[in-house]
Simulated scan of single mutants.
Amino acid sequence: MISSQPSVIEHIDFTSEAERIRSLVATHGSPLLILDCDAVRRQYRALSDALPGVELHYAIKPLPHPAVISTLMQEGARFDLATNGEVDMVAELGLDPARTIHTHPIKRDSDIRHALDYGCRTFVIDNPDELKKFIPYAADVQLLLRLSFRSPDAKIDLSKKFGCDPAVAMALLQQAADWGIRILGLSFHVGSQCAEPTKHVEAIRSCGGIIMQAEALGLPALSIVDIGGGFPVDYQDKVQPIDTFCAPIRDALAGLPAGTRLIAEPGRFIAAPSMTAVSSVMGKAKREGRWWYYLDDGIYGSYSGRIFDYTHYPIDSLDFFGERSSSVLAGPTCDSVDVIEDNIMLPELECGALIVGRMMGAYTSATATDFNFFRKAEIVVVNDAVSEEYNVVPLTA
Rank of each mutant, 00 (worst) to 15 (best):
T364C: 12
F373L: 15
Q175W: 04
A18C: 11
F321C: 06
F149G: 05
L349P: 12
G228S: 08
S70P: 03
D178Q: 14
T396H: 11
S30Q: 09
L33V: 07
G85F: 03
L349I: 02
S70F: 04
A169H: 06
K161F: 07
E130A: 07
R261Q: 14
P97S: 11
Q74K: 14
L24I: 05
V68Q: 02
G352W: 03
S304Q: 13
S304P: 02
M212N: 14
K107R: 14
I204R: 06
I135W: 06
R358I: 08
D243P: 07
M1E: 13
I210H: 07
I307S: 13
L222G: 06
S365L: 10
I355A: 15
R99N: 09
T276W: 05
A77N: 00
D140E: 15
I211K: 09
I379R: 02
V8L: 11
A39F: 05
T364I: 03
Y44A: 04
M282F: 03
D243F: 14
D370E: 15
A154L: 00
G191E: 05
F162A: 07
S223L: 06
L295A: 08
D370A: 13
T276G: 08
A26C: 12
P314I: 04
F269N: 03
A195M: 13
D36N: 15
P220C: 11
D36Y: 00
R261N: 11
I227Y: 00
T364M: 04
H189C: 08
Y294N: 09
C246V: 02
A264T: 04
F134T: 02
T15V: 12
C351S: 12
V381S: 05
T244D: 15
S304V: 05
R287I: 15
P66S: 09
D38L: 14
G185W: 01
W292L: 04
P314Y: 02
V233A: 00
K133V: 01
A171E: 15
I156Q: 14
C246N: 00
D49Y: 03
C334G: 15
Q43D: 01
G267M: 09
P197D: 07
K238M: 12
I315Y: 03
L116V: 13
D140P: 07
S151K: 04
V201P: 06
P273E: 00
L33N: 08
N127D: 15
G305A: 10
V278N: 01
T122L: 04
F231T: 06
V328F: 14
G361S: 08
N127C: 15
G352M: 03
C37N: 11
I299E: 03
L354D: 02
F371Q: 13
D342P: 02
L47K: 02
P64S: 11
A167T: 13
F245C: 05
I106D: 00
E341T: 03
A91N: 11
S70E: 08
A154K: 01
A67R: 03
P105R: 07
P394L: 09
L253T: 05
F321I: 07
L33P: 01
M360H: 03
T244I: 11
G180K: 05
G322T: 03
E341K: 13
L63A: 08
K376L: 10
P166W: 12
S326A: 13
L93G: 08
G185A: 08
T244C: 12
A139Q: 13
A203V: 01
S223H: 07
D129V: 08
E10Q: 14
